[in-house]
Amino acid sequence: MSIQSQFYQQTRVPSTLARWWRHYKRNPLALIALFVLIVIALIAILADLLAPFDPARQFTDSIHIPPSWFDEGTTTHLFGTDYIGRDLFSRLVHGARLSLSLASAVVVLSAISGIFLGVLASFSNYWINSLIMRVMDFILAIPSLILAVVIVAIIGPGLPNAIYAVAFVLIPHFVLITRSAIVQETSKDYVTAMILDGASKSRLFLQSILPNILPPIVVQLTLAFSIAILEISTLGFLGLGAQAPHPEWGTILSESHHNIMFAPWTVAIPGLAILFTLLSINLVGDGLKDAMEPRQK
């Protein structure tokens, strides 16, 4: 043996996950955003414990009380109350639960169907493939919110229908991403080598293609999550999603919209909640994208 093994240390090759995390950690904004997102998720999960009041309970003697940091505010109602005396903080906390769980449902629905269609398109013959892709192109051509509004109009307003509509308009993104990732991956030589070795289609997909197309799909998941939150709250604001007593963020805003002059906090605070959530999801998404597909020069 030569001398080098005695005083030169070996380099350790980290696992893929560890490498992603190491890249991700370098981005301080993304780290903060991840922390914020975890806190929001915890708030959503622990809504029952955190919220001091029932979100629907009306304090008829304390209507339009400003947040606690104003002179007229009280500590009982941290973020104040709305036009029929409901505690804004409790409504927001329960709204977080509602918004996050609705958005998760949307993302799961559209990701499963989108990835399935994408895989189907890339492994089937020319006609099925072009049929799927044409239809997806068409859905993409219509602005997503307008399409969601139209779908809700046809199947009727309300929460479950809003979820279906938003999930439907998000499907094409997953189909396109999945298919282009698969097409890109299957043109690589190692896949050809596996085909030559006689690997079956399912084995080929599960063992070699799936792990490699994961990064773009994960990034798309975060993107879809933020779009879902935005569109559900927009539908709620337009009165087509969650209906009035529900403490959904968009619905809260649409209720307080008319009282903006007397109680600006009932507009400002729920909007900030949406903005912060979207911002942290988008930051996490950006961070993930940089970590998983580092473009080094």
């Binding site: 001398i3 080098q4 030169y8």
Partner: peptide
């Protein structure tokens, strides 16, 4: 980010000796 101590070729050099650090 992690250059070797001493001669840069050290860890790979077929004729490295102790003084190459």
């Amino acid at each position: 980010d992690k250059p070797p101590v001493g001669c840069r070729l050290g860890p790979r050099c077929p004729s490295a000796e102790k003084q190459c650090v």
